[in-house]
Design a protein around this nucleic acid. Structure first.
Lengths: 331, 331
DNA sequence: CTGAAAGCGCTTACAG
DNA sequence: CTGAAAGCGCTTACAG
């Protein structure tokens, strides 16, 4: 047998085993609409395919259909893992039900020079922050027709959740608690980062809408011991609240403040972002923003399906209460 | 022009523009060895390809060559992000230089039902822990010839770094500092997990070789407040040292111990794993195991290249000092 | 040194 | 209801 010879099983093998043509194998296995198949033929094909453990060659399918059924999600150059865990699980699950595979790809400065979309041939590419012009041109050149965010449609709710909703809730909470002189804090490492800028901008915009001065962006180092001095300087400059990029940053700031002999939140209030494990664990426990990542992941998957199938949603229905303030001890 | 018509540029388009055959385009662009090409022809082809921004269709290449030039790395169902950041950057960079793309894939219980190797057609699949028999069969059925770890070659040094080296250093350090009654701690969430078991086993083995009793595996919850009681119970039972799966777990244990009024490390010593950001940030700062993730990523890439090209390395040269103890305040 | 031809494994009009 | 044929975009013997 062909299969026994070490060769991979092809549609032709299945056809031979079932006593039909390769075309019929395709009709049965793909449930080709507009094509009627007798019950007995269908049964024989299915039996043979299952017995031979036939798996279509995805490269051949991609070549002939012009579609890879791969959805590529390009992640920004900044830690998102905690937020993304359930999100990706759920999104992958939903997309899989429709025959799509979700591949994630962290595009980093010193990473691969040949971007992954070149070898993967995805049907659609998503990013959480806008793509550079170079990336855009590169994707187009690889025959990728659907790229998101599309500059013309940049205010999508899914992206708001990743970028704007958190900072807005953070600033609003500090404002409510009476902390009005704020800074926006992120870490120097691992590298420069686009998502920090986007969230910082959202924080500034929301501060402005509340009549607060814009929180300056401050980068801190978590290893060299300089954080204590930095935090003390903030205090001396009258800063009363810190909007942290994520809970790790918040923990770093709180730790530094405690070492510097300050009281949290009396001397300095700090709010994190993500409601990650460390937020509940840290002493004092961190106030933060929690997200219903499963609901958001499902929402993304539906959105992606509509886009990739060429039926874009007219408007995006955000999950109710997908983001919420978690008030603990640092504000 | 074809390109202007919205169609993707093909080798035939380049051939037409350069006044040669499609075959010649392939010879030039692939530097086909054993095929001599005149300088003028080569120049014309390269010029045309560059002018038209030609990108070979990867599906067609995969179909005809039987190789996708994709390397799939299946990650375990447990947080590894901090460790993997530089590791993946470096591995991707090195593999890219040889024309391979590294795709990562977190295989999770409620994740996609159709595994990614089916749609990606990778040339080789790596896992950090052994694959289930089902997965193994599934990969074989998809025509994947190279799967790693191969049960027959399971003691590879790369994997030791992910699985055994850290726990060994953790146990050895606690032993040296005089902490001999140990538990191995991990978090209940997000879910069951294979890497925890593997590391716990490594810790037990090393404890045994040092003449210590095996540290029991204990799962703790970081949200429901039960951790304080659990930690107090450990203390009451005479436990003096905690080997934590990673720094997040260590932070949770230390935080619970402090809230329970215990002294760290006097009442309970705790050692983390990863030297992540939180290890340096936490108050008290966590003792932990740091890894030279860049060197390890590079090492993996070389190893993967040899495997995928069919020239397996006879033995693997581990980077010197790729793992080291970082002694801070919790031991 | 270069081109015409076959073929990778599928899908999809088109006949019958 | 089913099959023979063409074709997706490449690569690679094989001629010349």
């Amino acid at each position: 047998m062909a299969a026994a010879a070490g060769r991979r099983v092809t549609a032709a093998d299945v056809a031979r085993a079932a006593g039909v043509s390769p075309a019929t194998v395709g009709f049965v296995l793909n449930n080709t609409r507009g094509q009627t198949i007798s019950e007995s033929t269908r049964a024989r094909v299915l039996e043979a395919a299952s017995r031979l453990a036939y798996r279509p060659n995805s490269a051949a399918q991609a070549l002939v259909s012009g579609r890879s059924r791969i959805i590529l999600l390009v992640l920004p150059d900044w830690p998102l893992e905690f937020l993304l865990r359930n999100w990706l699980d759920e999104a992958s699950r939903v997309l899989d039900e429709s025959g799509y595979s979700l591949v994630t790809y962290a595009r980093r400065p010193n990473g691969a020079t040949r971007p992954l979309w070149e070898s993967l041939n995805p049907d659609i590419v998503f990013g959480l922050v806008p793509f550079s012009d170079d990336d855009f041109v590169s994707m187009r050149g690889c025959g990728i027709r659907r790229i998101y965010p599309d500059p013309a449609r940049w205010d999508n709710t899914e992206l708001r959740m990743a970028v704007r909703t958190g900072p807005e809730l953070q600033v609003a909470h500090l404002h409510e608690r009476g902390f009005t002189k704020l800074v926006y804090a992120a870490l120097e490492e691992p590298r420069p980062y686009s998502l920090v800028e986007a969230r910082h901008r959202a924080a500034c915009d929301h501060a402005d809408s509340l009549g607060l001065p814009p929180p300056d962006l401050r980068l801190i180092n978590y290893r060299d011991g300089s954080a204590e001095r930095v935090v003390r300087d903030w205090h001396a400059a009258g800063v009363t609240g810190v909007v942290a990029f994520n809970d790790d940053v918040a923990a770093t700031v709180v730790g530094a403040a405690l070492r510097a002999g300050m009281r949290v939140p009396a001397d300095l209030a700090v709010i994190g972002h993500d409601d990650s494990l460390i937020a509940a664990t840290f002493a004092p426990a961190l106030s933060t923003i929690g997200f219903d990542t499963t609901a958001l992941g499902r929402g993304f998957a539906y959105f992606a399906l509509h886009e990739v199938e060429g039926h874009p949603l007219q408007r995006w229905q955000a999950p109710e209460n997908a983001a919420e303030l978690v008030h603990r001890e640092t504000t």
